[in-house]
Design a protein around this nucleic acid. Structure first.
Lengths: 259, 259
DNA sequence: CGATGGCTTGAATCGGCTCAAAGCTTGTGG
DNA sequence: CCACAAGCTTTGAGCCGATTCAAGCCATCG
């Protein structure tokens, strides 16, 4: 993945969403300003372990993750829990708002979380006035779906070691593309128990598997901080092919000219 | 699921797509005619085992499944295969066409398949002229994503028996909603080997698990025909909650008045 | 009629699970 | 500043669900 080094994350001022969307297409100054404005309009915070929205609720707002980590999860009646997605800064929760009557899953904060709430009106104004942003948001939605498919592959085909390695690769690359990781290092505020619920493994086995990755000299993981010591080897071990993240600036033909 | 009995599939004339979309909202005569027209424009057939589109291809057309079954799948480099979705008559393949540069997965025919090919122009005309159809297609896309999430849960949390039972429940209900199943009976042209690739189990174990379901008096499955003998019990065994299929006519407020 | 693809069965093995206990951190209140 | 609780991580032992390997069966089709 050469572009990981060449196409480094944008400067410190940009928020994670803008940074991520520019993996798809260069936004104009006006686009970026509009995004910043919408995101600044109304904020809300949640504490770690708090639910951001819950199965059965009527969805009413679009959330943009600004800070912290969250996850999408489902409970089975008998208490088993599966995390089906992680939300990182720059990710969007749920454009289904205007169509579906109720949530079929919950969204929970893993850490303290700050989100931007976007109402229907602001959102429609944004996409009406900024076709490039509309395209970029489509791209982000399609990537989200592609990630969900890859998780299906991950759970269906990979053994414990590959599975966890794959998840670490994915999260690292996604953080990187939002400007939140460099030199193999990133925040990683996910407990082993959460990791177990995301990978369909028991937490005991997650623990042993992480130890194996450490002993192999592939990662360092402690105090909610992850360092990937040998990304290439980790990717090979995980059979990780990043094509599904569509990071190759696939919307380059839409690029804005002005800086 | 009371609506399964009360809200029976529509008359024989309707195609599976129309039938399915009306689980969301009642279409007007004009809507239905427009759908039929678009779907009749250009057809194409594929043989069983043939690829409809392949990883790496540039997507260019929208396909509507008219007849036969297909699947979305991914290979890992080392040959392992995971089926990540089934396409049944009435399903749509890929609205990502106009955004993503290349397919990150393949679509393969499981049986002989007839599809309608829809070009970009026809599609845009359809959604410009028929807002109710646009909404219904949104709904169908959101349900597809919800199904993908539920597959993640299925692979992550359920054991072999539950997993296969769950898949059978889902496929039965989806076929039912497209007007292709009645009285617990439906076509089921999926080999045990395909089932293995879809559930992340070995085909030997799929075989034994199906036998268990048969011995329990829950299903009959032979000659590519499936009969569900006790849907309630099967659903309980599978911990199957159909809420993720959003079949409760969630778009009822958009219903067309005219017949 | 042989070939091919799908289904079935048995035996041995193993990856990952459960149960159980203990060590470590972090935060809270006395 | 210490005590204690709560939550997270680690370790060990025994077990079970699902896999692998291998062979045989059955139907269909050219």
């Amino acid at each position: 993945m050469d572009h990981l080094s060449s196409n480094a994350p944008k400067g410190a001022g940009a928020n994670a969403l803008t940074c991520k969307l520019q993996q798809f297409t260069r936004l104009s100054l006006a686009d970026r300003a509009a995004l910043e404005r919408v995101v600044a309009e109304r904020r809300r915070t949640f504490l770690g372990r708090e639910d951001i929205s819950r199965e059965g609720d009527k969805p009413t707002k679009i959330y943009v993750m600004l800070n912290g980590w969250a996850c999408r999860y489902k409970f089975l009646e008998d208490g088993r829990r599966q995390i089906v997605a992680f939300f990182l800064p720059g990710d969007l929760c749920d454009l289904n708002i205007f169509i579906l009557r109720q949530m079929d899953h919950s969204i929970g904060a893993l850490t303290d979380v700050t989100v931007a709430e976007i109402g229907r009106d602001s959102f429609e104004r944004l996409i009406d006035d900024h076709p490039r942003i509309t395209q970029a948001l489509w791209w982000e939605a399609l990537v989200t779906i592609a990630i969900q498919r890859e998780w299906t592959v991950n759970l269906g085909q990979r053994d414990a070691l590959e599975r966890i390695a794959h998840l670490l690769c994915e999260l690292y690359v996604r953080l990187w593309s939002a400007g939140l990781a460099t030199d193999g290092h990133c925040a990683f505020p996910v407990t082993q128990s959460d990791l177990a619920d995301a990978t369909g493994l028991s937490k005991v086995h997650v623990n042993r598997t992480l130890q194996e990755l450490r002993q192999e000299g592939l990662i360092r993981l402690a105090n909610r901080q992850l360092t990937i010591l040998d990304l290439d080897r980790l990717k090979r071990l995980a059979v990780f092919d990043p094509n599904y993240l569509h990071l190759d600036r696939e919307g380059a033909h839409l690029d804005a000219n002005n800086e």
